[in-house]
């Protein structure tokens, strides 16, 4: 789980081009949207593609993203539960 969380942080920074942010700046329980990292609906769509590309998990309804992408931790938990490959 720890390794997955660290890997996710790096992948998110890269995919979303989060300038000036390092993995250490992101607390795995902080919310990714709104107050926390300040991500928005376009970022959520980027994360959906990240899940498909890196973990082979497809999300059909963008509304499901709200729960899954609440924090790095919820994202990691979702991946562990659904990963097939």
């Amino acid at each position: 789980m720890e390794a997955l969380i660290e890997k996710l942080k790096e992948q998110i920074i890269k995919q979303l081009n989060l300038e000036d942010i390092t993995p250490a700046d992101i607390n795995e329980e902080d919310s990714l949207f709104g107050e926390g990292l300040g991500l928005d609906s376009i970022d959520a769509l980027e994360l959906i593609v990240l899940l498909e590309k890196e973990y082979g998990i497809r999300i059909e309804n963008p509304k499901d993203g709200q729960k899954i992408f609440f924090s790095i931790k919820t994202m990691a938990e979702f991946i562990q539960e659904h990963q097939k490959k």
């Binding site: 995919q15 376009i42 769509l45 980027e46 593609v49 498909e52």
Partner: peptide, 9 residues
């Protein structure tokens, strides 16, 4: 496949 929205928008 595997396209992301930012550059399209």
């Amino acid at each position: 496949t595997l396209l992301t929205p930012t550059s399209f928008i």
